[in-house]
Design a protein around this nucleic acid. Structure first.
Ligand code: MG
Ligand code: MG
Length: 396
DNA sequence: TCTGGGGTCCTAGGACCC
DNA sequence: TCTGGGGTCCTAGGACCC
């Protein structure tokens, strides 16, 4: 069944909220991110700031170099943006009950079947934009297409305040001239690999040798981008998804060596992780310590606990133990944080236990040595030891 | 004028199990 | 006559996305 998927992406979300809330900042270059004198980057900036070449993820020092003196710099107010986001999502649910929040400022909607109710895809998109403008006073860019990929690319196509609908028979022509950087999963690291292969645009991916792509990118990524180049993508919109992890980290204004401050920071992070975990009723089994050293080398050390927990004290103790075991004492630390993941282990389903795996084809003879192993595989003593764990197999 | 923070998913190697 | 071949779990690192 052919579906219509709509992707909605708010324009310069954080910066637009700040300008909406502070009319005196409208029309001026505005940066949401670190303070210009401090360590950090641009989270989002207004379109006025983009005219000076400022972009998300740009070091704040570089941004302030480019911008005139009347530019405004503000710290992110994440809780506020999340609240605005919630208002938007709730409003969108009046258009279609099938709304998937894809990030703080993005959503996918399945709008199939709304044509008789509202009109053609473009009309549905205009209605969504009008609704958002009316509810929170912000502009959004909207893309509509036969699947998520096309909807997403369409929403990016005419930013800001954009609207674009791509019909199934237009997909290939829409896609072919796009640069490879539009591919999901191709970023600044992988794009050069493709360019070295002479692949610049989507159409080139379609015509490339799949075997060579697999060799250079790995099986999964190669398959993913080939299917994207043909315009294929999921048309499923899933309203609820379970989060996989909770984490908290901070970059110090100056690198830290003092173990007391490191411990204080881990205690803080443990509390920041524990609070939402308990609020959401989540208990984790895996603690991850994250450290970025003064030279920007980034390490993680993780440990699986015997039982799931949401206890700050356990997080803190485990994280500190991981730090001490990491032999990093005395090295300047730029960033420190910890994460929690691995919610309650899933019990194996009946299918996992009883599904038979296919045996070898009849004409393939199992070697004598393999048959010996297979016979021994089933034999173990009361300690759970068997031929292999007892050392019949040599260690490599 | 350096390089945030919160996430997701993938890869790869070794241990372990059958 | 060099060392089965599946699978999962655990850990570390890394790319990517917003
Ligand atoms: Mg956006
Ligand atoms: Mg976005």
């Amino acid at each position: 069944m052919l579906r219509w998927i709509m992707h909605i992406d708010l324009d310069a979300f954080f910066a637009s909220i700040e300008q909406r809330d502070h009319p005196e900042w409208q029309g001026r270059p505005l940066v949401v991110g670190a303070a210009p004198s401090q360590r950090g980057v641009v989270a989002t900036c207004s379109y006025e700031a983009r005219r000076y070449g400022v972009r998300s993820a740009m070091p704040i020092s570089q941004a302030s170099q480019r911008l005139p003196d009347d530019a405004v710099y503000v710290r992110p107010r994440m809780a506020h943006y999340a609240a605005v986001s919630k208002q938007i999502m709730a409003a969108l649910e009046t258009i279609s009950p099938v709304v998937e929040q894809a990030s703080v400022d993005e959503a996918y909607l399945d709008v199939s079947g709304l044509e008789r109710l509202i009109g053609p895809p473009g009309t549905i998109g205009r209605q969504a934009k009008r609704l958002i403008k009316h509810t929170v006073g912000l502009t959004a860019s909207v893309g509509i297409g036969p699947n998520r990929l096309i909807a997403k690319l369409a929403s990016e196509y005419r930013k800001p305040d954009g609207l674009m609908a791509v019909h199934p028979n237009e997909v290939q022509a829409f896609l072919d001239p796009m640069p490879i950087s539009a591919l999901r999963g191709i970023g600044p690291r992988t794009a050069p690999t493709l360019r070295q292969m002479g692949l610049e645009r989507m159409v080139d991916i379609r015509q490339a040798d799949p075997a060579l792509l697999e060799k250079r990118l790995g099986l999964r990524l190669a398959r993913a981008i080939i299917s994207q180049a043909y315009g294929r993508g999921s048309d499923q919109v899933q309203p609820h998804s379970v989060r996989q992890s909770i984490s908290k980290a901070t970059t110090f204004e100056q690198d830290i060596v003092d173990p007391v401050r490191l411990r204080e920071t881990l205690l803080w992070a443990a509390q920041e992780v524990g609070r939402p975990a308990r609020r959401e009723g989540l208990q984790g089994t895996t603690i991850t310590l994250k450290i970025r050293l003064g030279n920007f080398k980034t390490l993680t050390r993780q440990r699986k606990l015997p039982a799931p927990t949401a206890d700050d004290t356990v997080f803190y103790r485990q994280a500190w133990a991981l730090y001490q075991e990491s032999a990093l004492a005395g090295k300047p630390v730029r960033l420190l944080g910890l994460g929690l993941s691995g919610w309650q282990h899933n019990a194996p389903s009946q299918g996992d236990l009883f599904d038979e795996r296919p045996g070898p084809p009849e004409h393939v003879q199992t070697p004598r040595r393999v048959r010996l192993f297979q016979a021994l595989d089933g034999i173990s003593n009361k300690f759970g030891q068997n031929a292999i764990t007892l050392g019949l197999r040599r260690k490599r």
